[in-house]
């Protein structure tokens, strides 16, 4: 068997893995944002017709999975397995969301980097011949995330300017051996990077070192320059994280200012929508990828992009116990499918 590893942490697929479809579903606030017209479905009811935030997130994930299957023209029986995750403790949004689909599942947790993790593993599984069609999806919900990590929604407090706004949204992609207009040609697995920061309300600063590490490693492993990409797209670094990423990369002699784009900065209008540093959450990178990035690659407007969802690895307990907030970033190379 030919090895497909590349450099120290990367994989270059011998046969690119096709992205058959991308689907996205978001809440009202995201629908009112700059990308509002691009999402497949906008749900005006924050409860998604259920009784709790958690059930709402599960419902959203289920609907998005079905949307992705529909767009790929597949039935659920044709999906070999799902890689899915969310932000809630014990990943309950995915567990309860996917139970009715009756498809084999691997549950993931990578904080807000989960879409990168899901796409990476799904691509590896397809490339390894372990499934004809595999679904990668994630979700996050503002209500459930606030409850999980911060305060009850009705509590009146001031969020710092460095805080991000958790995206209510779910994004899904069906991967397969062939048949899509875009494909995953490689990936770089991220390391957990800890610069010792403890401020959970400044997650951009916690994750920027991880993004920097993965980007540098990726470029080195593939012997590429930032110019080899039409866009280098991070997940949810936000305004402050982006600035720090540029500085950190500059220290290492790398400049991605021309190519860089951050999903968290794209999904909301920070001034108009009062979201402070930007959007965040598993759903942020996933929905922006499925609704905005993927179509641009499919049409060939962007020939090759590097998609790097970033995650801040903390829990309420680790935070209260005074632990630092390490970051992780998973990179996926997405290119336009070449005609055979």
């Amino acid at each position: 068997m030919t090895t497909q590893t590349k450099g120290r942490q990367s994989i270059a697929f011998a046969q690119p893995v096709s992205i058959l479809s991308g689907a996205s579903m978001v809440g009202q606030k995201e629908g009112e944002g700059p990308l509002g017209d691009l999402f497949d479905c906008i749900c005006q009811d924050p409860m998604f017709g259920t009784e709790s935030w958690e059930q709402a997130e599960s419902t959203m994930q289920k609907e998005t999975a079905q949307l992705a299957l529909g767009k790929a023209g597949l039935t659920k029986e044709q999906i070999r397995m799902i890689f899915a995750g969310d932000l809630l403790a014990q990943s309950i949004a995915s567990s309860y969301g996917l139970v009715d689909l009756e498809i084999p599942v691997y549950g993931l947790y990578g904080a807000c980097s989960t879409m990168g993790e899901a796409l990476s593993l799904a691509a590896m599984a397809v490339a390894g011949g372990y499934g004809e069609y595999i679904l990668a999806l994630t979700s996050s919900h503002f209500g459930s995330a606030e409850k999980e990590f911060r305060f009850p929604l009705g509590y009146g407090n001031q969020r710092p300017l460095s805080a991000t706004w958790t995206v209510t949204g779910s994004g899904a992609c069906v991967l397969g051996r062939k048949g899509g207009k875009a494909c995953i040609t490689g990936l770089t697995t991220g390391k957990i990077i800890d610069y010792g920061l403890k401020d959970s309300m400044n997650m951009g600063a916690c994750m920027a070192p991880a993004a920097c590490d993965t980007i540098l490693r990726h470029l080195q492993d593939f012997c590429r320059q930032p110019e080899d990409y039409d866009r280098i797209i991070t997940g949810d670094l936000g305004k402050i994280g982006q600035r720090i990423l540029f500085d950190l990369l500059e220290e290492k002699g790398c400049d991605i200012r021309q190519q860089h784009m951050d999903c968290g900065l794209e999904i909301f209008d920070a001034e108009e929508q009062d979201t402070h540093a930007g959007g965040s959450g598993c759903g942020c990178a996933a929905t922006v990828f499925a609704s905005y990035v993927l179509p641009k690659v499919e049409t060939g407007e962007w020939k090759r992009v590097l998609f790097i969802p970033t995650g801040a690895l903390l829990s309420k307990v680790s935070f209260n116990e005074g632990q630092t907030v390490p970051g992780i970033a998973q990179a996926v190379v997405v290119e336009q499918e070449r005609k055979a």
Binding site: P160, L161, N202, I240
Partner: peptide
């Protein structure tokens, strides 16, 4: 980080 982070 403190230097580059805006505050109220």
């Amino acid at each position: 980080v403190k230097e580059v982070t805006p505050t109220h």
